[in-house]
Amino acid sequence: MKLLTVSAAAIVAASTAFAGGIETAPAPIEPLAPLPPVSTDWTGAYAGTSLGYGSSDIGTVADPNGAIAGVFAGYNVDFGNTVVGAELDLNAADFDDEPTAFIDRVHRLKVKAGYGTGAALFYGTVGAAYASGEVGGASVSDNGYLYGVGVDYAVSDRFHYGLEVLRHEFDDFDNSGIDVDATTVQARFGYRF
């Protein structure tokens, strides 16, 4: 009887050990749902912030350069692949060439026209610019014009980021007889309403 019990226990143990070696088919993997497509319709209002670097040339007087940061708001109309719009941006600048000169504000009103392809919008822009600062201890400000290029990339239906390069020209700045120019490069982060 004792031999029968030990034999039965051995058979159960052996069958359990062999059962662990049986291979089973893995559960089927469910495919991930595709991400929703990013909207390529650029029509509507948007606003955001920007941060970058600028360098300027104040005739033969000074060459101030430094950081520039601001806010922007605009409106685009999408005509298929062609996009046109207008934008206002206000910027604080720290273009410094102490003790000779500095530029502390650069504001712009721009019109834009571009080509949308997928989630990217490539555009050119022209417009009016305003700058203020100090030269030789005197406060100065004037209006000028700008032109440049940029690209925005939609990461969702609402958010986009981009890069913009602008050239600013101010002839006879504040009736000083000195021409001023500046180039800015700014990263942009925006929200479409």
Rank of each mutant, 00 (worst) to 15 (best):
A10E: 15
A120E: 06
S15K: 13
G177Y: 04
I29P: 00
G177R: 04
G74V: 07
P36K: 15
F95G: 00
I68M: 05
A113S: 09
A120F: 15
D63Y: 04
E23N: 12
Y191P: 03
G21L: 15
I58L: 10
Y145P: 02
D179H: 04
V77A: 10
L32D: 10
G133I: 09
N143H: 12
G114D: 07
A93K: 02
A93M: 06
V135F: 05
D179S: 05
A129T: 11
S15V: 14
D41K: 06
L3K: 12
G116N: 12
G48S: 05
A67M: 11
N91G: 01
P28R: 14
S176V: 04
Y75Q: 02
P28C: 10
A128P: 09
E30T: 15
P99K: 08
I58S: 01
G177H: 05
K110G: 04
Y153M: 04
F189R: 00
L166I: 12
G114L: 11
V126Q: 03
S55K: 12
S55M: 13
I58V: 15
D57R: 13
V151T: 05
A113L: 08
A10Y: 14
A92Q: 08
F189E: 00
V84L: 13
E30A: 15
A138D: 09
D181K: 08
S132I: 13
A8P: 00
I68W: 02
K112S: 06
T125D: 06
I178Y: 02
D104K: 04
T49F: 15
A120M: 13
A9N: 14
I22T: 10
G116C: 08
V151A: 11
T82R: 09
A86I: 12
G80C: 08
A13Q: 13
Q186F: 02
D78S: 10
A131H: 04
S39R: 06
D63W: 04
E134T: 06
I103K: 00
A101P: 00
G21T: 14
I178W: 04
D174V: 10
A27H: 08
H107S: 14
S132N: 14
L163Y: 05
R108P: 01
D97E: 04
V185M: 06
D89Q: 10
T100R: 10
A19T: 02
G137D: 03
G44A: 09
A17L: 13
G118V: 11
A73C: 05
F189M: 06
K110P: 02
G144S: 08
N175M: 02
E134W: 05
A128L: 15
P26E: 07
I22K: 08
H107W: 13
G85S: 03
R108A: 14
F173I: 03
F170L: 02
A8S: 12
N76G: 04
T49K: 00
G150P: 03
T125V: 12
A33K: 15
